[in-house]
Amino acid sequence: MKFGQWVGFTLLIFSLYIFWEIRQLILLLFTALILAEALSILVLKLQEFGLKRSQSLLISVGFLFAFIIGAFWLIIPPFIQQIEELVKLVPAGIAQLITTLQEIGTQFDPELIQALPTFNELIGQLQPLINQIANRGLNIFYTSLGMILSLVLLLALTLMLLANPTPYRQGFIRFFPSFYRERVDRILVQCDQTLTRWLIVIMAHMIIMTLLSWIGLLIFGIPLAFSQALLSGALTFIPNLGPVLAMIPPIAIALLEASWKPWAVIILYTIIYITIQQLDKRILASRVLKQHICLLPGITLLAQIFFASLFGFLGLLLALPLFIVSQIWIREALVKDILDHWRIS
């Protein structure tokens, strides 16, 4: 390589090292970007009704603060109260499940009992992994500022990105050579459009899961239906793993109620999942996702494992939007602009 190419390569390696060192801050910025993207959907919808952007921004920000205040005033207190009971009931339900499996095992093979872990052994094996993921994901919040001030910083970044995104966008584009900046701008447009479509779909998933699970758990008489429905809706944000994790608390609690209720919960969540998938194919995918997002389940699962190991819990939570953005950049910048034009002289 020529001297200029060596300099460019060295600067690239140095830039990657800097990005790695501040990866938690970048993740915080990406979280604010996702929140701003979600609020911008509401801004655009209000503008379709003839409102100016400034008016739409004020209404959207007012809606955000009203939601936060309403959540702390109406939703969070009963949710916290039910979560405290949930934390007590779920371990008891899991212990009951292990006991039931042991009873079934004695009917087939008594030696099978020795292979089944006890509840304490199960928790002991999972605890290091849970602590590792949680600590990596929440390190950014436990700075000298404290968790509350960090959340305020996240909210402030979100509002600044929402109010005037152009300077931040132009600043990012200027990191690239002048001949490639127009191309970067087009790639950013693709990322913005794809994330917007995905956010609309995932928010619809979360609302459907919350409402249907709440109604179903109330019908079956499962305790703490409200908190479990909210938890199920929130976990739906995580594809593949989220719906599975959402089933664990209601099944564990149903084991303490009646023998038929765990099966009822499994059938309920299976029906909800199938309903969401059918709505995806017939309504959401056709009307919202005009350009189909190719997210193969196997690759999505690998992406979740990768980002969770890299960033912890926040990486798992944001794995899909991170994967979507990475997929677009790899396809456009690496494959189309470099590999497709690579010729051996």
Rank of each mutant, 00 (worst) to 15 (best):
I148T: 01
W198T: 04
K2N: 10
T158D: 11
L162S: 03
T99F: 15
L256D: 08
V201D: 14
L255E: 12
T143Q: 12
Y142R: 12
L157A: 14
P243A: 10
I130M: 09
Y180G: 05
K281V: 15
A254D: 10
F226A: 10
E182Y: 09
I207C: 04
Q304T: 09
L46M: 07
I187E: 02
I69T: 13
I26Y: 00
F237E: 09
W329K: 05
S15H: 00
T300C: 04
I113Y: 00
L12P: 04
R331N: 12
L295R: 05
I324Y: 05
L195E: 05
E85H: 11
V152P: 06
I133Y: 08
T166P: 11
K281D: 11
L25E: 12
V189I: 09
R53D: 10
F226C: 01
P177V: 02
N164W: 06
D192R: 15
G137M: 03
E84G: 00
C191D: 10
L279W: 06
F9W: 12
D185S: 14
G221C: 05
L122P: 06
I293M: 07
C294G: 14
R331Y: 11
F172Y: 14
T31Q: 08
I305N: 09
F237G: 11
I299C: 03
F141E: 01
V61L: 05
K88V: 07
S326N: 02
L44G: 12
F14D: 10
A71T: 14
H292Q: 13
L231C: 09
H341K: 14
A229Q: 03
I328F: 09
T100Y: 07
I338V: 15
A319T: 05
I202T: 06
F119K: 05
R282V: 14
L161K: 01
P165T: 03
I324N: 04
W329C: 13
S213W: 08
E48M: 08
G312T: 04
F49A: 14
L301Y: 07
Y17H: 07
T10A: 14
Q107N: 14
L97T: 00
Y168V: 09
L296T: 09
E257A: 14
I248E: 07
I274S: 02
I41A: 07
F119H: 13
P110V: 01
E84T: 00
T31N: 04
R53F: 06
M203L: 14
L289Q: 13
L256T: 04
W198E: 07
T194E: 03
V288C: 01
